[in-house]
Design a protein around this nucleic acid. Structure first.
Lengths: 203, 203, 203, 203
DNA sequence: AATGAATGAGTGTTCATTCAT
DNA sequence: CATGAATGAACACTCATTCAT
């Protein structure tokens, strides 16, 4: 990994843990065993660093959308939930910056960040819409339902710790279930099986 | 409203809009037509200001829990969803600070903020548990379900604008519906009618 | 004691303990159960306060000179040593300010403080000169001897604590002895008696 | 001389002339043709600067003790007086800070400064004790005599100006004489000749 | 590439002092 | 007399960034 990538990785960690403004360039440099000024041989500015981290996260999220299996809306939505949560689990710092720190970009760059986020949200909304059009998801307001789903997914970065007791798979399975129920879909077969169906399945 | 309250209100706005660290005391003062130093006749430190805003938000959220109607879990959960969203709508800046900026408190005060947030989350979890114990909510993992609900609710501060086209009532109604469905409850009477209930309920 | 005197007394304590610049008007006020601004009903400025404290100390020292007994130089010098040390013991804060903090006065007032100190030093020098002229003190350089005596006396404020184990009388007696010996005078009779003479007396 | 040493030297001058609290970092920087903030590339804090100056002075004084000639107490005491005065003459600013400004250090560092001063005073006291044990110095109270000597020596920083009319040698000679007489020692050979010794010695 | 010294603007905060009440 | 709010300047210190080496 070259210096620039190292810098971006550490910057992601620090921006996500302490916030963009509470992270100083000197501290970033210290984590790389460098002097503050040396960073500028590799980057242009602190703000560029922030935008780049946002871009990297956006790319990861966008790839989830691109690699969604074709097929029925339930399968696709499950894949989306799992993919989204996987990105959060694997790229927690960058994801956190994508969700929060982008705000601190100033106007020219801010627009790009907003666009990246909007593009992803629209992708998610498209998946919801498909399901609704197919009659599989039953919701009153597609936009609201999308936001609801995104909310539930995004917030996980606030509490989920990949090295904690809850495995990514277990989380994804449970969340997919909850999301699908909220979208008016019956519990998935696997879910039923894992729980010996009955009770939950009939609910 | 005395000066201290004015300061707290403006601080809430600025901390929520720009973030704690990106808000300078001089800027805060300027919004009150004061010199920077003059703030210190009313407050002790910037950090105290942050904690106080967090406390005010926590109090509002806590009151929602305290004023929940007694009765069946569905009614209570609906009231919780609506109450939570009302606090967000009415106290958007403070709620935002409660959700995010508390992180920038330093250790002694940080603990208080964490305790306030934990207390509220436990209150929400209690409502979910009641419903599960009563056999009305059907979820595999109470903790996860609670986090799911909280996620969906909390994230709204990111996009909901009280002066936008979506009324608080409409939002709350829709979200209550989605939450209850995720919790495995059949659509409520109104919901059923609008959605021709039956099918959905059995799904 | 009226308010002004109270203020001067506390100011003396604080200026001497923490130094003029490290003492804030608010702290001074707090010691008097007042708000900072309230001091200005009684005084004109912080600097005036400093000068006034210097003046009070100077007056005490000057009175020692004025009340010196007439008589032989040894008796007068002993009285001077004791009187000087008594002022330090009884007025430690003011004496400390007189010795040190006067430096922080700005030019117009600074001159007065310097004059007060000079006047006292000249008084002491006069006592030394008398003794030399009378052939009782034997020193090469009157000015240096005076400075030597003043040094020994002044520095006591740095370590002498009136409430410590060493009584003012014992200190004064011992210092008078040392000063007189330095000035080339034999040990005083009292001194000899107190120690059952022998050893020291013969030295 | 590197920047750090320059800073320490100027800091010594300013702290001694105006006092620690009355010296601003900006003023210190201005004397070095720097911006205020630039100092912090070389030092950690203003307080560190104060401690360092105190340390440098302490080192000089301590070296006087270490380099005292072995031999009779009178010779040693003379060397001590001369050495002490030489440090004051050659390092007036640092010595002044050593005598006074150390008080403004805050607890952790304050203790070090106190220890340095105590160590030197004990060294001086040891020299006095030697002389007493050898029967050469005749004093009632060793501790008081030591303080007397230290007082006389220390205070010189208040008035002695190395570039004034009084040479360091003349001052040291005269002070050594006065100190020894106070310690009950007959005038030294040179002194005896000048003062016709005999009389004085027997006094 | 990296350093280390420097800048100039900015940080939160304290200060002596004023003044209407 | 005393208060409490305010000022405007100053404080020690940090910041992102530049640049000669």
């Amino acid at each position: 990994m070259d210096r620039r990538s190292q810098i971006l990785t550490i910057a992601g960690h620090l921006f996500s843990r302490k916030g963009y403004h509470a992270t100083s360039m000197r501290e970033l440099a210290r984590h790389l065993n460098l002097q503050g000024g040396s960073l500028y041989a590799h980057i242009q500015s602190k703000e560029e660093l922030l935008l780049e981290v946002v871009r990297q996260a956006a790319e990861r999220f966008q790839k989830v959308l691109e690699e969604l299996p074709s097929g029925d809306p339930v399968t696709r939505m499950k894949a989306l939930v799992k993919g989204h949560l996987r990105v959060i689990a694997e790229e927690l710092p960058r994801a956190t910056v994508f969700f929060h720190e982008w705000k601190h970009l100033s106007p020219p760059l801010l627009e790009e960040a907003k666009a990246l986020r909007r593009r992803y949200e629209e992708g998610v909304q498209a998946v919801v819409e498909e399901g609704v059009r197919a009659g599989v998801f039953r919701v009153e307001n597609v936009r609201l339902a999308t936001l609801f789903v995104l909310s539930a997914l995004n917030w996980t970065y606030q509490w989920y710790r990949p090295d904690g007791p809850l495995s990514l798979e277990a989380l994804a399975e449970a969340y997919a279930e909850l999301v699908l129920k909220a979208l008016g879909v019956a519990a998935s077969p696997e879910g039923e099986r894992r729980e010996k169906g009955g009770e939950d399945g009939e609910a």
